[in-house]
């Protein structure tokens, strides 16, 4: 078990290094940073001095190493556009994105599993058919269109929910400002969370349904029924637990893409998160912010993958190393 964790951590470090290389390459290939830092009347000598002072004349590996070393300490330099430390910028925007991702992840998981189980158990019911049909729409409509449709129906026509922004936020701790504790903050969260989570929800639902149907056909479910267990115990104790093994992986990976895909939703709803910050940075070729965003998303994916692997162990006893008596 420990060996497994160490091995996975080692793999994670390699992945992060690879992403760091890509991020670092951004600096070298997306224009000359000196050109975007100095004014037009700076002399060539001054430029060369600045170039030297910033270490841009050092060999590639030396530069890469110092980038990685500083990144590991959370130092991604100064934003070209806003002249603020990148880390500070990202940290101030991160709570908004994480809250949105968390709420839409929970929404996607709960409704995905709920609908999936329902449609698997009541395969022939009209409600199941209705859910399955609607889920097709969820899978096939692009996120921005769903967002715009929701804004049109609930914000413009019904005037029930706000169409943009985060509402009122209150500080929790040093740098975390939450919208979950205010009424307007929670109202503002509903539409973007649904927009962001709808695709993932339909995906989870279809996966749960397919897995559940598969599990319900197995011998051990038949045997569980033959032992006279209640439907509840068979469906939710035996079938659902076995269904969850593959579902955990997909859900974990989806959580990563929820955070990554929040770019579109944040743009549609003008949500002040890191996704919106990233889009701005791309427009202004703000390379340090882009690089840091890339690293952040990679880190989130790596951490989620690690957690998913550990969850596997918790759910499936067959993966645990047997206690030396698997001989009979």
């Amino acid at each position: 078990m420990l060996a497994f964790i160490i091995r996975r951590l080692f793999q994670s470090v390699i992945v992060m290094l690879a992403v760091a290389l890509v991020s670092f390459s951004l600096f070298r290939f997306v224009g000359d940073p000196i050109a975007s830092m100095v004014g037009q009347e700076t002399t060539l000598a001054e430029r060369a001095a600045l170039r030297d002072a910033l270490g841009l004349n050092d060999p590639f590996l030396v530069q890469f190493w110092s980038f990685v070393a500083r990144a590991a300490q959370g130092d991604f330099g100064i934003s070209y556009r806003l002249q603020q430390p990148v880390m500070e910028l990202i940290l101030s925007r991160l709570p908004a994105t994480l809250e949105l991702a968390m709420i839409s992840g929970i929404f996607a998981f709960l409704f995905g599993v709920g609908f999936g189980v329902y449609t698997a158990l009541k395969r022939r019911g009209w409600l199941s058919n209705a859910i399955m049909t609607v889920s097709l729409i969820g899978v096939s409509l692009p996120t921005f269109l769903i967002g715009v449709l929701l804004i049109w129906v609930f914000a413009v026509e019904l005037q029930m929910l706000p169409s943009f922004g985060r509402g009122d936020v209150v500080p929790v701790g040093d740098w975390w400002r939450t919208g979950l504790l205010t009424q307007s903050g929670r109202m503002s969260l509903i539409l973007p969370a649904i927009t962001l989570g709808l695709y993932q929800m339909t995906l989870i639902m279809r996966l749960v349904r397919a897995e559940m149907l598969e599990v319900l056909r197995t011998d051990y479910i038949k045997f569980a029924r033959a032992r006279g267990l209640t439907n509840r115990a068979v469906n939710f104790g035996h079938a659902l637990k076995n269904t969850m093994v593959p579902v955990i992986t997909i859900t974990g990976l989806q959580l990563g893409s929820i955070i990554a895909f929040s770019i579109i939703t944040e743009t549609v709803f003008q949500w002040p998160g890191v996704g919106a910050l990233f889009i701005r940075s791309v427009q202004f070729v703000d390379v340090p912010v882009m690089a840091a965003y890339l690293m952040l998303i990679a880190l989130i994916f790596v951490v989620i993958n690690l957690i998913v692997d550990l969850l596997y162990y918790a759910v499936d006893p067959r993966l645990r190393v047997s206690r030396s008596h698997a001989r009979h």
């Binding site: 197995t218 011998d219 051990y220 038949k222 045997f223 569980a224 029924r225 033959a226 032992r227 006279g228 267990l229 209640t230 439907n231 035996h238 637990k241 076995n242 759910v315 499936d316 006893p317 067959r318």
Partner: peptide, 27 residues
């Protein structure tokens, strides 16, 4: 169905063909 459930296991037990797949692997 509920009355039949009480018959299964309690009054009529069943043994299936394949012991490798008859037991739930997660319990």
């Amino acid at each position: 169905p509920e009355a039949m459930r009480r018959v299964r296991g309690r009054r009529i037990g069943m043994v299936f063909q394949d012991p490798l797949t008859s037991l739930n692997p997660l319990y």
